[in-house]
Amino acid sequence: MDYPIEAEGLKKSFRQLAHGQGLTEKINDYLGIGKARHVVFDSFDLKVKQGEIYGLLGPNGSGKTTLIRILATTMLPDSGTVTVNGLDVSDSRNKDRISSTIGVVLGERSRSFYWRLTAKQNLEFYAAMYDVDRKEATERAEYILDFVGLGKRKDDSLFNFSSGMLNRLAIARAFLHSPDILLLDEFLVNLDPKASYDTREVIRNLARKERKTVFFTSNNAYEAESMADRVGILYKGRMVAEGTVEELKQRFGEKDTTVRLTFDAMPVGSDALVRQLRESGGISHTSVRGTTMTLIATEPMAGLENAVRIFKSKGVRVRNVEVLPSSLESVFINITRDKTNGA
């Protein structure tokens, strides 16, 4: 199988709720006869190669979760062909065969477990649901829990688990029945940097060791860059760019300059400072993490001059200035900005 995940001409739309509209529209909505529809995908194509780690990067609301749910068979496409391991996801007769070959981590991980059960009991229950024999399930659960770093917490109730631990448990569950394909929906959300790094390592190592095809979604360019063999950029339901990280950087990354500034301490009123920088001209994007600030300058000289002037007027001391090589984040921003501007 060259492409275990394939979509061709996928269309998907949802009935739009008429919040804030008149009584008639609300009654129509309630009765399910509202006509307004929100189009998520209009002729969307995707091909994921055997054994690759593919990251789908897109802003919130671009259709990432919808796509994962369609691939996982919990949502039906309106039209088009979507196949997993060559099996049409729209055909309900394929559901069991698809279920056997995919491991899924959906959003809201904390809501997908039985909180009164221990980690091991949860995995044993789901193993039975996937037809893994009880003896094998116990062995596999212990092996996977060890692998994701939860071996010592296997007999703990989930009440004592952090978000990061629940994420790792969800990953363990996805690997439980040794699926060929992993579908991971924003699986690094709410994790601290260490937990995020550990989780990425777990996925990468398990995927490489067990030769899995991994398809994950994210709205964080750094996560996608650090994990994916190939990245697709999804914007308003359309694949606007696709390739390896290097290919994307070459094609879309040379326009702007990314500069990272490090401060002795983050100045008071940093939100106002960020706003002022964006409005000063020459700077298109600003993000702050701890005592560092990343600027994407569309006009490097003018942008930096403006930034220095603003810092000086506020008495902000810059400890270090670093011009960064083009990153997937800047690629992502360039592409989505161009699309927003209608380019």
Partner: peptide, 14 residues
């Protein structure tokens, strides 16, 4: 409500 319905549906439970 607990959010487990979808994950069970994803499995091979009929």
């Amino acid at each position: 409500i607990t959010g487990t319905f979808e994950t069970i549906y994803l499995s091979r439970a009929n």
